[in-house]
Computed example of a mutant assay.
Amino acid sequence: MYVYAFLEDFVLLYPVYAVLFADAGLSPAAISSLFVIWSVTTFSLELPSGLWADVFSRRLLLVVAPLLAGAGFGLWVAFPSYPAFAAGFVLWGAGSALRSGSMQALVYEELERAGAAGVYARLIGRSEAVSLLAVVAASAVAAPVLAGGGYRAAGVASVAVCVLCSVAGWFLPESRGAGRAGGGDRDGVSLGSVVGEGWAQVRGEPAVRWALVLVIVVEGVTALDEYVPLLVRSTGVAAASVPLLVLVVTVGDAVGGWSAGRGVRWLAPVLAVGAVCLAAGSLSGRPGGLVLVAVAFGVFRWAMAAADARLQERIGDGARATVTSVAGFGAEGVAVLVFAGWALGSRWGGAGVLMGLASVPYVVVAVVLGLAARRGGVHREM
């Protein structure tokens, strides 16, 4: 799982693709429209992919997902234009949808069968940290690769890594009935029965609904991390320094993932601190402010792992990937609002101002969680 997580995000284009789009002549609004295409594709396939994962092989979906992303990256560097960028995001979005829900469900059920479900939050959090460390490594490697071979060299390396990730996916364990043939449907399980079971869990369990809302909001708003390279660029640094400064934020993000599972009872106040750090660091307009932004993203990563674990504890195995995909669907919907808001706001404000304003939803979540904790009832349900 850790090998898969590392290879999935050891993509040299990650820290610079927003800059690639800008260098190709795209405006901030055009770049945001690409992100919208990405999110629309992902959430359009979220629910179908969750159903497929509950009925068929989750491992097979995890094998196909990185291949689709790699094809998209290849398009970007082979034909750097808006149509190619859009097509690449469609492929990447499809791959993200196949992975979303499938990985969480596979990991939780395998841990549960081994009697170790309690370590899920730590394992998922550390897996996310490994992914982010891969981004850190990719950011460090991207600078010399870009200097020596430009975007094309970074793209070729990214495609190769995606192929290796697919190979790693084939070796993930899957003890469900579907895993025996790599893709057959489970005995006695149909798409209709999975939909019915998932709907019953969401409709009949308030704890599931609250956990879903928390995951949707926290993960959805964190889509603003796509704009970190533009935030870095807005501080006035040279293009070659962008990957290294993005690395600072990514390190903070990774630390948050590695800390997953600890201090969850302090979720509300810690989220509030993260929101303040995001606003202060973004509005500073200086490279040094990125340290505060790094702290903020670490907090958000830690909160995402806590929310995911809370959701997995409350849903049943029969429709686990489907319900998890509902959360992904909602998060992508929130992400579309984030991208649209950035596109509209870019007419009046720069990257620092827009990133600073993005702290507001986290403040709202922190306040709601704090009030719920004081009342006690909602807190117990969540």
Rank of each mutant, 00 (worst) to 15 (best):
A275M: 06
W266I: 00
A69E: 15
V90L: 13
V273N: 03
V270Y: 05
A117L: 07
V77F: 14
D185Y: 12
P361W: 07
A275L: 11
V221S: 06
P80Q: 07
F6P: 05
S102D: 00
A134D: 06
Y227R: 13
S131A: 14
L224Q: 14
V135F: 12
V63N: 10
H379K: 09
A260C: 07
L245C: 02
A181D: 12
F85C: 11
V145M: 08
D317Q: 13
L271Q: 05
V19C: 00
W38D: 13
F297G: 01
V208W: 03
R122T: 12
G274M: 06
P287A: 09
G350I: 04
L20N: 01
V208Q: 05
G349I: 06
C277N: 02
A71L: 15
A327F: 01
D253G: 01
V264P: 00
S33C: 02
A18D: 01
V323W: 04
L244F: 15
E110A: 01
V251A: 13
G93D: 12
Y108H: 11
P229T: 09
S193V: 08
V323K: 05
L20F: 15
D317A: 15
Y362C: 10
R113W: 00
C165W: 05
F56H: 13
P144D: 03
F79Q: 06
V194T: 06
V255I: 15
D54C: 07
A5K: 10
A240N: 01
F73R: 14
L98Q: 10
G70M: 12
L172W: 03
W348S: 15
V365K: 07
G88Q: 13
C277K: 00
S193W: 00
I124Q: 13
A275N: 08
S49V: 00
D54G: 02
S282A: 15
G252A: 10
